[in-house]
Design a binder for these strands. Structure first.
Lengths: 99, 99
DNA sequence: GCAATATTTAGCTAAACTGCTAAGTATAAA
DNA sequence: TTTATACTTAGCAGTTTAGCTAAATATTGC
């Protein structure tokens, strides 16, 4: 992953997890393995279209994968993008003193 | 740290790092060990008051500590709060299958 | 005390975000 | 081929965010 793409990925991931509902969605989907849009919408306080938009933002950030199954849409966590955030956090484990 | 406080801390941290300028400030201050407000403001494209506000948000989130030194104000990274985010990310390393 | 330096606070505007309801699309069932 | 189900898209209103300039508040040095 080239540096520019990585920076864009980090930007999208950080923006995506900035909203509590999206963090909760992400964690819930992870813990259940996979969920349909309806399952997710049903579990949260927001109206369905609001959840749809949150899902869209998570997909756009690469944190969720989606898949059609008949009239259902199944969502799953894509763990690879979380690595970008892990990596960013890693900088703070290194001691200070660089440029 | 009780769960409610931890959740609030996570919220503040995630909101704080959602902005690219704030991520850059945080990393720059970490790498240099400590910086004055002027040093920080001088290194970034924004007007000084804009940077002051970003600094305020980072301090409020507990990610930066500040200290007066004459008419300068010195900022330093407070690493403990990053642990809250690390911990949240840790949930995704555990295999799915909980409730 | 008076001027200069370092930084913040106040207040404004434009843009982005988030929630909603209503309407649309696609698949399945009858 | 109609009707129901699952979900998305469109569009609007309220709130928050982020940038700016101008003015205020230390603190230091003369």
């Amino acid at each position: 992953m080239d540096p520019k793409a990585k920076l864009e990925a980090l930007e999208a991931v950080c923006a995506a997890i900035a909203h509590p509902a999206r963090r909760q969605i992400l964690l819930t989907v992870h813990l259940r393995g996979s969920m349909t849009a309806g399952d997710i919408a049903g579990r949260f306080a927001h109206a369905w279209p609001t959840t749809t938009r949150h899902l869209g933002i998570l997909v756009e950030a690469g944190l969720l994968k989606q898949e059609r199954a008949g009239r259902n849409r199944i969502y799953e966590v894509d763990h690879t993008r979380l690595g970008v955030l892990e990596e960013w956090l890693g900088w703070f484990r290194k001691p200070p003193g660089g440029d």
